[in-house]
Structure formats: structure tokens, C-alpha cells
């Protein structure tokens, strides 16, 4: 890429050198980075990607080759097989759930755990942005500061809540604050947990976006006869599509890659376990299954890769949500 300073509209080099002394740090950094030759960047990309390439190559090598030689020897002695993929997907060792089933499990967890918090967060963000009510800003601050609570700290209390509910005994009377839902091992417990932990960030991001929508449009809709629900459904949701998409990608990838929540709340329920759990089980249960790991890892990566590359523009826009308008 040639530098922007080659343009015919730029003043004499002397003038721009003078301006250089005054220009902000950001611009100087940008100039420095754009002066780095492209091959340096390619080199960095190559080094960074090398382990992944090794994993990919290994996933196609037969078990014996994997155990006895490094992946780079493939260049002298190429031998490839699709067996690892076949076994991992359809013929898992030792009675484990196949990866083809685990993919469905992952979707069954990731889709509700993405859609539910988004709808809730969009409604909450609209209310925080456009519905005046008492204590609005304090509640908003409280909700957003929940982002600071580490997931790990809440795991045990949540598990307790989902399995036994919450009961309060006062003066010999027992009140049920939260019913015994006995969700232990149910996917719904995983949805709920991801929803809870996704909401603060989602509300924060969407609030930034929704509050920057023009007030005129809401007023026009009010006069046209829309109530809050109508405005939310017909105006806010369609207009917030970029922000919703951005958050959906975040949340989906996060849930898809999650191991901890699924491990704890599914409590070993094999039939509902997502890819991440099955992947780990491949090794721990059977040392002999290690040759399946590279192929299994790639299977679990496919969906995030597809999502990332197909929705890249929303991803970047989402990172900027609220900071740069539009």
C-alpha cells in the first residue's frame, strides 16, 4: 500500500515536515506503522499461524505418523488420511457421543444463549435510553457494573440456585424466593447462565447504540400512534440491526467456545454436552484417542471461523459501538 502522503493535494514536503512536529501521537503511530514493509507483516502472520497450520496438517496424518514424527516431515513423505475426521465425527471411541451429535448440542446451547439475552438486552437498553423512570441512571450503573463480577465466583451459588432454589426461613416460616427447578444437567441451566452473564455487556453496548438513535424518529412514531412496544418492535429493533449483529457474534462465539459453564451445569450429561466437553473427553478417557484431537479441534473451529469471516464487518463495527456513530 502506498502512503496517503503521495497524493497530489498535499502541500510541499517542507510544509508537511513542519506540521509533523505538531501532529498528535495517534497520527505519528499510524505513519510509523504504515511505513513498515508489508513483508514484515506477512512474516508475523506466518509465525503466528504456524502452530495452527501444524495442527491442520496433523489432523490429516495417520495415527502412526503423528506419534513418530513432526508434522513438517509431511513435505518429504506425504501420506494423508480422512480417517481421523471420520472417526471423530461418526465413530467415537469408547461409547462417547459422536462429534456430529456434539455439533448439534453446541448449536442447541449457543443459539438460545445468544437470542434470549439479545432480546432482553435490547428491551432493557431501550428502556434505559428512552423511557424516563425513577432511578434510571442508578439502575443502569448497577446493571453495567455487574460486568465486573467474575463468572467463576458465581458458579457455585448459581448451581445451588438452579438445583435447590432459594428458601428463606424467618420466624419459623419458610418462604420460597426461587423455586426448586432442579435444572441440574439440563441445557436450560446453561442458557440461563450465559444469559445472565451476557446481559450486562449486551445492555451496555446496545444502550450506547440505541441512545444515539435520533429522538425525532421516536417522537414521530409517538405521534403516528405507536406505544413503547410498537416503537421498540418496529423502529428500534430494525434500526439497531448492526449493533444486534455485532453483539450476537460476540455472544455466539463466547458460548460456542465455553467450556466451564457447560462442564459444571451439564454435570456430565453426555447427551447434551457440546463440542468443547467432548473434545476434552477424547483425551482424558482414552490415551489412545489423542490422534483424533487435531481433527476434533478443527471440527469445533469451523463454525466460529465461518461466522467470523462472513460477518467480519459487523464484528469490527460492534467493537466501535457507541464510540463512533453510525
Amino acid at each position: 500500500m502506498t502512503s496517503v502522503h503521495d497524493g497530489p493535494l498535499v502541500a510541499s514536503p517542507k510544509a508537511s515536515a513542519k506540521a509533523g512536529a505538531m501532529e498528535p501521537v495517534g497520527e505519528r503511530t499510524h505513519r510509523f506503522l504504515s511505513a513498515v514493509p508489508t513483508w514484515v507483516l506477512w512474516l508475523l502472520v506466518f509465525l503466528w499461524t504456524l502452530p495452527t497450520i501444524g495442527l491442520l496438517v496433523n489432523s490429516f496424518r495417520p495415527k502412526q505418523d503423528q506419534l513418530t514424527s513432526g508434522w513438517w516431515t509431511v513435505f518429504q513423505d506425504p501420506s494423508f488420511t480422512l480417517d481421523n475426521y471420520r472417526v471423530a465425527l461418526f465413530d467415537p471411541p469408547g461409547g462417547y457421543v459422536s462429534f456430529s451429535k456434539a455439533i448439534l448440542n453446541s448449536f442447541a446451547i449457543a443459539i438460545p444463549a445468544t437470542v434470549v439475552p439479545i432480546l432482553m438486552a435490547a428491551a432493557a437498553a431501550y428502556a434505559f435510553a428512552w423511557m424516563p423512570f425513577k432511578g434510571r441512571s442508578w439502575i443502569f450503573i448497577a446493571v453495567v457494573s455487574l460486568m465486573a463480577i467474575p463468572l467463576q465466583m458465581a458458579l457455585v451459588p448459581l448451581l445451588q440456585l438452579f438445583t435447590n432454589g432459594a428458601h428463606l426461613t424467618l420466624f419459623g416460616q419458610t418462604f420460597t424466593v426461587f423455586p426448586d427447578l432442579n435444572l441440574n444437567g439440563e441445557p436450560i441451566a446453561v442458557w440461563l447462565t450465559h444469559t445472565c452473564f451476557g446481559l450486562p455487556l449486551a445492555i451496555f453496548l446496545l444502550h450506547n447504540y440505541i441512545s444515539s438513535l435520533p429522538a425525532d424518529v421516536f417522537e414521530a412514531a409517538t405521534i403516528d400512534g405507536a406505544n413503547h412496544f410498537g416503537i421498540f418492535w418496529r423502529i428500534v429493533l430494525p434500526l439497531s440491526r448492526p449493533a444486534l449483529a455485532a453483539f450476537a457474534i460476540f455472544q455466539f462465539l463466547w458460548v460456542w467456545n465455553d467450556y466451564l459453564v457447560a462442564l459444571i451445569f451439564l454435570a456430565g450429561n453426555k447427551d447434551a454436552s457440546p463440542l468443547t466437553i467432548q473434545l476434552v473427553n477424547l483425551v482424558t478417557s482414552k490415551g489412545a484417542g489423542t490422534e483424533l484431537l487435531p481433527s476434533a479441534a478443527f471440527i469445533s473451529m469451523i463454525v466460529p471461523l465461518i461466522i467470523f469471516f462472513s460477518m467480519q464487518k459487523y464484528f469490527v463495527r460492534g467493537l466501535l459501538a457507541g464510540s463512533v456513530k453510525g
Binding site: 435520533p214 425525532d216 424518529v217 417522537e219 414521530a220 412514531a221 409517538t222 405521534i223 403516528d224 400512534g225 405507536a226 418496529r234 423502529i235 430494525p238 434500526l239
Partner: peptide
């Protein structure tokens, strides 16, 4: 409520619904 006052308003920035067609904008009410 504004919607029950039987009035229509035209705003300085037009306040059109950007995701709707002209026909849907006009017919929204």
C-alpha cells in the same frame, strides 16, 4: 396522549423511518 390528539407533525430533520420505504413511511400511522 399525542396519538389521540388527531394531529400530525412535520419535523425539522424530517424524522423519517430510515429502514422503511417511502410508502411504509407514509402509511405507518
Amino acid at each position: 396522549h399525542p396519538k389521540d390528539r388527531d394531529i400530525a407533525m412535520v419535523f425539522q430533520n424530517y424524522a423519517l423511518y430510515p429502514h422503511m420505504t417511502v410508502a411504509d413511511n407514509i402509511g405507518f400511522a
